[in-house]
Amino acid sequence: MKSFAVYSLAALAEIGGCFAFWSWARLGKSVWWLAPGVVSLVLFAWLLTLVEAEAAGRAYAAYGGIYILASLGWLWAVEGMRPDRWDVIGACVCLAGAAIILLGPRAAAG
């Protein structure tokens, strides 16, 4: 459960940081939007180091499913566009994959 909470916070930090860049580059917002964006992206990277996984690549791969779900939440909550059924189905498939990656039984290293 701790990993899900960390992944959720990381997703919010990553999406917020990326949206700050998007706002500056695509929406004509002030260059000052980049400062909190950079801080948010640094927070995102640090949060991923807190995930209980024996390898960074596995932690990042599992995070992908949570990121997709959070992105669709952002789409709906911040951008005012409701995800359609294909978005929801795709997110469910990705979450199932993330769970398999993170929680699947592993052979003992040796």
Results as ranks from 00 to 15, higher is better:
55 A>N: 10
87 D>F: 01
41 L>G: 04
40 S>W: 04
27 L>Q: 14
62 A>Y: 03
42 V>C: 06
54 E>F: 02
82 R>K: 14
74 W>I: 09
32 W>F: 10
68 I>F: 13
87 D>L: 00
48 L>K: 03
68 I>H: 01
68 I>R: 02
73 G>C: 11
44 F>C: 05
46 W>G: 00
59 A>M: 06
36 P>G: 06
31 V>M: 13
69 L>G: 01
61 A>S: 11
88 V>P: 02
45 A>V: 02
56 A>H: 11
39 V>T: 01
25 A>L: 15
44 F>E: 00
37 G>W: 05
31 V>Y: 13
35 A>E: 08
30 S>Y: 07
84 D>F: 06
39 V>D: 01
35 A>R: 02
78 V>G: 06
87 D>I: 01
86 W>H: 15
77 A>G: 04
84 D>C: 09
77 A>V: 14
75 L>F: 10
42 V>M: 06
30 S>Q: 08
74 W>D: 05
88 V>L: 08
53 A>G: 06
51 V>M: 06
27 L>N: 12
39 V>P: 00
37 G>Y: 03
72 L>S: 05
88 V>Y: 05
44 F>D: 00
58 R>P: 00
52 E>N: 15
85 R>T: 14
59 A>F: 02
24 W>M: 04
72 L>N: 07
61 A>K: 03
86 W>K: 14
27 L>W: 12
27 L>T: 09
85 R>N: 08
73 G>L: 15
53 A>N: 05
60 Y>S: 10
68 I>Y: 06
57 G>T: 12
58 R>M: 05
73 G>Y: 10
48 L>M: 09
49 T>F: 10
50 L>M: 07
86 W>Y: 15
51 V>I: 14
47 L>R: 01
64 G>W: 11
77 A>L: 13
52 E>W: 05
36 P>T: 09
67 Y>D: 00
27 L>G: 09
65 G>E: 04
73 G>R: 07
79 E>L: 15
31 V>Q: 11
86 W>M: 14
33 W>N: 04
52 E>L: 08
42 V>P: 02
66 I>D: 00
40 S>E: 06
65 G>Q: 05
45 A>W: 00
33 W>T: 07
66 I>R: 03
71 S>K: 02
38 V>H: 11
48 L>S: 01
82 R>P: 07
53 A>C: 13
53 A>E: 12
39 V>K: 00
32 W>V: 10
78 V>F: 15
80 G>Q: 11
54 E>I: 01
52 E>S: 13
66 I>A: 14
58 R>C: 01
41 L>H: 09
70 A>N: 09
78 V>N: 11
78 V>A: 15
61 A>P: 02
80 G>F: 09
49 T>V: 10
81 M>W: 10
62 A>S: 13
38 V>P: 13
43 L>Y: 00
25 A>H: 12
43 L>G: 01
77 A>W: 11
67 Y>W: 09
79 E>H: 10
27 L>H: 14
52 E>A: 13
62 A>P: 01
24 W>A: 05
78 V>M: 10
34 L>Q: 07
59 A>Q: 06
56 A>Q: 08
54 E>W: 04
70 A>H: 03
29 K>N: 11
54 E>P: 04
83 P>W: 02
67 Y>N: 04
52 E>K: 15
59 A>H: 04
63 Y>G: 04
66 I>G: 03
42 V>N: 04
46 W>Y: 14
53 A>M: 12
55 A>M: 07
61 A>R: 05
75 L>D: 06
